[in-house]
Design a protein around this nucleic acid. Structure first.
Lengths: 297, 297
DNA sequence: ACCGATCCATGAGCATAATTCATAGAAGGA
DNA sequence: TCCTTCTATGAATTATGCTCATGGATCGGT
């Protein structure tokens, strides 16, 4: 036991990426021969072959494909670990890595970070927004230390708690007929163009919490990545959107937009902070939660 | 780059488990000197020290603790990968590993597996029920290939779909006053002893879907691990429980118990099958879902 | 069909890295 | 204080990984 080494994963990944042993060897700063020997050894040791020659191309066997899939998951973890350790070496405490899964999460985070940095002058901070296996996977695999998300998951090994309460409101431009309304009903969306971020509809508050329960679909659903563009479109009267009320209020200085309550009762949501179990009590996490709580009041 | 090797993780884990370098060395079938050298090299290469001597004990530094935590997560994956590969070597397709997160899931699985084995005579099957980081983590980390759970999670990288519909019913013994009722109301539980599996109440259908919404708590809540014991207690008139109706019907031959509807409408639940994204289309997963669908009709 | 280019496999030899051996120093227990 | 037990370190040894050289196979171009 203990035959499988890091180099084997590296080789498999490189072969997959570069397409040939020779190219992979170059990428790894080794000779083709070295790779061939390494793999051969692993294959005899484990009694499994990783690929078979199809013409002069290498085709992964099922075992090879499995190894590749594992390599693509394990090696990034490995590299992050190395990176983390060198960070510990250089600095003292390493970087606190925060992942966000929604734009409001990100905007809210920006309000917290100045205080955080003030409390931890020696801390380094990093914020990530794209994850290969989703924010949850990133948290599991220690790619990030904290995940801000509107969709908490109460599972073993992870711990979530709400850090923000906010009201989701419709955003309308200055000429829009909803300007003077107290609130809007789902039905009123049926004749509107709705701008949202480009994510699954079942992750959009406006659908899950408002339109879908009422069985309503907007006239057209248009996806926009950048918040500023979204607000410009709305300000121009081309349609409506939804955002947290505090975010609308903030942008109201820049854009002539207004927030309108969704339904008589309003739609209220939370943002959750997720940690790996136990780690919310580590220094950085502790501070973060305290700052969040302070802001909540 | 590329300095951190598997052996380093092994060493750190062994030192943590055995408490000393010497003991760790023995466990790894190496000399104490070898470990000392290996670690020393890693430390200089990464520019970080992993532990400092406190008396003659080794105390992990923050970096060391981080490395340890990572080792405890990565090494099991590593070992499972090796195991998997040797399986591919011996047999042909490897073992299909299924995890269950609830007892009904498990009981239901037992109905499917004979058909599955018939369709795949060469397949090996393994069922796991305990997971260090929860079923979700096990799925992420390829400890299992399929997760059966009542709590699906719709996240990137994972795909869930319902495979069973069932009605959760109250289970009562032969002398119990509920025997002849059409259904029971939440309030009636207030004077009963309730037996359930030992999991969080927010993962028990009877609480989340029935008692808690009505603001009712049973007179006493007693935890039992084994289903057969639970049924014996119920048959003996010591209290009531809840199970899927089909499971009660099955056990009715062995135990004098009866299922009673929860509320006038009944409480209906699903069991979900979760795969890593894409893998539900692989041969085993495909077959499994087809068998599940066939049984659903 | 041939020839050249390209790719992988393999054996031999070598260089480097890993491991052991031997030993010294530090710390705790009796 | 002495004895035991632990880690660190330098030198010697062993083992492993890597390169070099080469052969066989495949594909594309002419």
């Amino acid at each position: 036991m203990g035959e499988l080494e890091r180099i084997h994963l590296e080789i498999v990944r490189a072969v997959h990426e570069k397409g040939s042993l020779t190219a992979a060897a170059e990428a790894l700063h080794l000779t083709q021969s070295a790779l061939s020997h390494s793999i051969k050894k692993l294959e005899t040791l484990l009694g499994v072959s990783l690929w078979h020659r199809d013409g002069r191309a290498l085709k992964f066997t099922e075992a090879g494909a499995w190894l590749l899939a594992s390599a693509q998951r394990l090696l990034p973890s490995w590299e992050q670990l190395e990176e983390r350790l060198t960070e510990f070496g250089r600095g003292e405490r390493g970087t606190f890595k925060i992942g966000t899964e929604c734009h409001p999460c990100y905007k809210w985070l920006l309000k917290i970070t100045p205080d955080f940095l003030r409390e931890w002058p020696e801390a380094d901070l990093d914020v990530r927004q794209k994850f290969q296996f989703g924010g949850l996977g990133a948290l599991f695999q220690r790619e990030i230390d904290l995940l801000l998300t509107p969709d908490p998951v109460f599972k073993h090994g992870l711990s979530f708690q709400a850090v923000v309460d906010y009201e989701a409101v419709a955003v309308v431009g200055p000429e829009h007929p909803w300007q003077r309304l107290e609130y809007v009903e789902p039905l009123q969306f049926a004749r509107e163009v709705l701008y949202t971020y480009p994510v699954d509809t079942d992750r959009l508050d406006i659908f899950t919490g408002f339109l879908t329960p009422a069985g309503i679909r907007p006239r057209r659903h248009q996806l926009v990545e950048a918040t500023e563009i979204l607000l410009q479109l709305i300000a121009d009267g081309r349609g409506v959107g939804t955002l947290p009320r505090w975010l609308v209020d903030e942008y109201a200085r820049e854009f002539p937009v207004k927030g309108v309550r969704l339904g008589e009762q309003g739609v209220f949501k939370q943002i959750y902070a997720g940690f790996r179990e136990g780690e919310q009590n580590l220094p950085y996490g502790q501070t973060f939660l305290e700052l969040a709580k302070r802001r909540l009041r």
